[in-house]
């Protein structure tokens, strides 16, 4: 559980409208704006009071308005969990990558791109659609987990989306 001093340090570094601190039981939830996101991540990794060396999970979902992003970190030395929540807009879903801080973010980010089309700025494969696609076939059209995704059924079992029946 991060100490109060550590949290006050956070609040000094990031302004009120950029970062909102929230608690869920013993877990710290940081709601951050997407432009301060990378700075916050770097800080959490470097700072000895947080020392978040373990990236557990990245996920996103579709609220119809925006794509919230949900990052879960763990500190091996201090044994606490920190959650970061941020938002990207549906029109321009772009966020800074964290692969340079946690290499394990690579595939998790690719999955977010594959399913929601969220672009990760600075990801090794950024802009290369075929390389970024991880679970879906390379030539798949659209991002299937978006709520407004409408597949175009081809009727060919070897290629393209399959009919629901």
């Amino acid at each position: 559980m991060p100490t109060p001093e550590a949290i006050s340090k956070l609040q000094q570094l990031f302004s009120e409208d950029q970062l909102k601190v929230d608690w869920a039981g013993k877990e710290l939830i940081l709601n951050v704006e997407s432009d301060s996101f990378k700075n916050l991540c770097t800080f959490l990794r470097r700072d000895t009071d947080f020392d978040c060396d373990f990236l557990a999970d990245i996920t996103s979902w579709d609220t119809g308005v925006s794509f919230p992003l949900w990052y879960r970190f763990h500190s091996m030395s201090l044994n606490h969990t920190v959650i970061i929540r941020t938002n990207v807009s549906r029109d321009n879903p772009i966020i800074a990558t964290v692969t340079d801080i946690w290499p394990g973010a690579d595939w998790l980010e690719r999955e977010c791109f594959d399913m929601y089309g969220i672009d990760f700025e600075g990801h090794p494969f950024q802009g290369d659609l075929a390389q970024m696609r991880i679970l879906m076939p390379k030539d798949w059209d659209g991002f299937p987990f978006r709520k407004d995704y409408e597949p175009v059924f081809s009727g060919d079992p070897l290629h393209g989306p399959q009919e629901r029946n």
């Binding site: 879906m136 299937p144 597949p151 079992p157 989306p161 399959q162 009919e163 629901r164 029946n165």
Partner: peptide, 9 residues
């Protein structure tokens, strides 16, 4: 998985 779009029925 009958209602999945990626599964061949």
């Amino acid at each position: 998985y009958r209602d999945s779009i990626t599964i061949v029925k």
